[in-house]
Amino acid sequence: MAEKRLRTGSDFTWRDMEVGNIVTEAGNAGLRRTGDWRSRRPITDKEKCNKCGLCWLYCPDAAVKLSEDGYYETDLFYCKGCGICAKVCPRAAITMVEEEEK
């Protein structure tokens, strides 16, 4: 159902709408690729990073995840490129790079 809801191509008509546009399954925001809103992406310099986790704490989309080596990685499927992580990083380890320059 959740996948059907995200499908808004030509075969999804008004007849497929739930009564009152209710989303009957919880947690399906996770299926929404918000990463394609991004114009700038965060790049972390591991040389500077001291694994303090402020980027993880401040990310408004919970797009920063703790990886096995103890560093923090950005999940680009969700990251909207807001730049808060770069702003709060006390060691300036995160820089925002224009997407077209990648």
């Binding site: 808004t8 546009n21 209710i22 989303v23 919880a26």
Partner: peptide
Amino acid sequence: PMTHGAFGAPDIYSEA
């Protein structure tokens, strides 16, 4: 749990 009053982007508002 379910969601009432979700956001409706231009790709779904008209159908709604």
